[in-house]
């Protein structure tokens, strides 16, 4: 399976050499169509799509935070006390980004076990972050602060919930990366210097780091 994907990616990479206008070289086995929709899209194309996805997510959060900024300036604004566990969660998410980077570095050295270990730890940190966010909600609820209690609490619940949903998607992506990198990586660089592991990890890392930065942004505006 990985072998087939790899071949596809190799052949597709050849098409990318002319800056998007290149001809599609026939696949290695010759005589085929050279491209089949059943196969994964080449890494560079995935990256382009990914950046546009992040643009859309950014627009979503811009909309929320513009509304938040407008609401905050009203005279009846009353901030709620946010639970300190959020600092722990922030640390967890930051750590998950760090371990993901570590996994990528192992991957570049061809250390498949290191990649799997790094990805597993990243996933665990990510899951712990989500559990921590739920704990923060429960802490607020125990203090009598619910979603509808005040505008500040409404925005807090809204932003953390929507961020959490995106993070859930990120966990799915990590799981996908774990599965894709489970097979022993073929030796030697392909895809113009990028092997399969780093191609997959690279895309997942962009999304995951984006979520970390997004959380820092959300945390900053909701706390300040």
């Amino acid at each position: 399976m990985a072998q087939r994907v790899l071949e596809q990616m190799k052949s597709l990479e050849a098409t990318r050499t002319a800056g998007g206008n290149g001809p599609r070289a026939p696949a290695g086995n010759g005589g085929g169509s050279g491209w089949s929709r059943e196969e994964a899209a080449p890494a560079a194309t995935v990256r382009v799509g990914l950046w546009f996805l992040l643009t859309a997510v950014t627009m979503l959060f811009i909309a929320f935070t513009v509304a938040y900024a407008a609401r905050r300036t009203a005279p009846d604004w009353a901030p709620i006390a946010l639970p300190p566990i959020l600092w722990v969660n922030t640390g967890l998410l930051g750590a998950s980004s760090a371990t993901l980077e570590w996994a990528r570095r192992r991957g570049r050295r061809g250390d498949a076990a290191g990649v799997r270990g790094g990805l597993t730890v990243t996933t665990l940190f990510g899951a712990a972050f989500l559990v921590g966010q739920i704990a923060a909600w429960r802490e607020l609820a125990a203090a009598g602060v619910f979603m509808a209690t005040s505008p500040h609490s409404a925005f807090f619940h809204l932003l953390t919930a929507v961020h959490g949903l995106h993070l859930l998607g990120g966990l799915g992506a990590l799981g996908y990366a774990l599965r894709r990198t489970a097979a022993p990586a073929p030796a030697g660089p392909v895809l113009g210097g990028e092997d399969l592991t780093s191609a997959v990890l690279g895309s997942v890392a962009i999304y995951w780091h984006f979520l970390t930065v997004l959380w820092l942004y959300v945390f900053f505006i909701i706390w300040s």
């Binding site: 627009m59 979503l60 909309a63 509808a148 409404a154 809204l158």
Partner: peptide, 21 residues
């Protein structure tokens, strides 16, 4: 469209969650 999605989510919160956006 993400902006409309944001607005729709907030309106759903107002309708179901009792918030006051």
């Amino acid at each position: 469209f993400p902006v409309l999605l944001a607005a729709a989510i907030m309106l759903l919160f107002d309708r179901i969650g009792g918030t006051s956006f």
